[in-house]
């Protein structure tokens, strides 16, 4: 719904649990706005249809889950090379291979570090509520158009399934950016302009080098301007839990519980996973003695937190490979870290 509000008129996807609510919604509602919903024969085809629609200048998106995402990586890599604005929703599920339908946060590495071949970056956003997912979906289209990049919404399995009330409002992030006209789009030359070419190749002499130089500048700009995060009870905290997505809400419950017992603990919640809020975390290392990273994985984002902390504070981890992390598990992790710091 947010995508349609954001002007998305082309949606291509292949059915996969746990995200079938999205194509089913699109199938019912795209026709109302004169848009296109198309069920592709595979995720390979779906992402390449998105490539085509984006190349033709449209706001296009797809959504998938683990196994479909692995297939889509070919197209995602191509979209990155061609610098096409695309929005992709990845609802994570459990394990490699077919894996399971359990809740998980196992695709952090793949989403934030590239995933496909060739050394590219996508903007990756993680919401912690249905309302925020609704807002970020609209932001994603804006960022995609502004930077000509793929923006991924990385969604925990349970966020894909939960129902919560939301306010349906056009998203505003305070700044209005003027989006560049899509003069590069394939719309036919009309014999008025030279041909436009959308290409995933870098075959000319020096082209690979030049492309990466240019992307480095773009990615640095994104890292400078698009970092997003949130915090909770951080003002007097000496321990910070770091969590993204729904896990951050489980952490909030654990923090409330620990605060009742007098433990000075707060939360740092990265919203943009690329660009990661390294600086925001590192500025607290003088005061926060311990960071507890918690994820529904065996530890992925924890590596970025370690980079941010850079040895100046203790970093510990609580996680599980899949399923639902309980706030009791996080509370236990906080207590253990507190004891460790006290005996140091």
């Amino acid at each position: 719904m947010a995508a349609i509000m954001a002007g998305c008129r082309k949606y291509f996807a292949y059915p996969i649990t746990p995200q079938n609510e999205i194509p089913e919604y699109m199938a019912a509602h795209m026709p109302e706005v004169g848009g296109v919903f198309l069920q592709a024969e595979s995720e390979l085809a779906a992402i390449n249809m998105v490539y085509g629609a984006a190349a033709a200048g449209e706001r296009a998106m797809t959504s998938t889950s683990g196994p479909g995402y692995s297939l889509m990586l070919e197209g995602i890599s191509g979209i990155a090379r061609a610098e096409l604005p695309v929005v992709l929703v990845l609802v994570m599920r459990g394990g490699p291979g077919i894996g399971s339908l359990e809740n998980a946060q196992l695709d952090y590495f793949s989403a934030t570090k590239g995933g496909g071949h060739g050394g590219y970056r996508n903007i990756v956003l993680a919401a912690s509520s249905v309302q925020e997912l609704f807002d970020l979906t609209q932001l994603a289209f804006e960022l995609a158009d502004y930077y000509r990049v793929l923006v991924m919404l990385l969604v925990d399995g349970i966020l894909g399934q939960i129902m919560e009330p939301i306010e349906i409002m056009p998203f505003s992030n305070g700044k209005t950016r003027s989006l560049p006209a899509k003069t590069w789009a394939l719309t036919g030359t009309g014999r008025q302009r030279p041909q436009n070419i959308i290409s995933t190749m870098l075959m000319r002499e020096d082209e690979t080098y030049q492309w990466h130089q240019r992307m480095a500048v773009k990615y640095q700009k994104i890292q400078a301007e698009e970092v997003r995060y949130d915090s909770y009870c951080l003002e007097d905290a000496r321990i910070a839990v770091v969590a993204y997505g729904m896990t951050s809400r489980v952490a909030e419950t654990a923090i409330d519980e620990c605060r009742e017992q007098g433990l000075p603990v707060g939360l740092i919640r990265p919203i943009s996973l690329f660009p990661f809020p390294y600086q925001f975390i590192s500025q607290y290392t003088h005061r926060i003695e311990g960071f507890l990273v918690t994820e529904v994985s065996m530890g992925q984002m924890v590596e970025d937190v370690r980079l941010a902390v850079n040895g100046r504070s203790e970093v510990s981890f609580v996680g599980r490979g899949g399923g639902l992390l309980s706030h009791q598990e996080i509370t236990r992790g906080i207590r253990e870290l507190w004891l460790k710091l006290a005996t140091k």
Binding site: T17, P18, S100, L101, E102, G157, I158, Q161, I162, M163, E164, P165
Partner: peptide, 10 residues
């Protein structure tokens, strides 16, 4: 404030 979280999948 409300949440509704189903079990899902097979």
């Amino acid at each position: 404030a409300v949440t509704w979280l189903p079990s899902y999948g097979p």
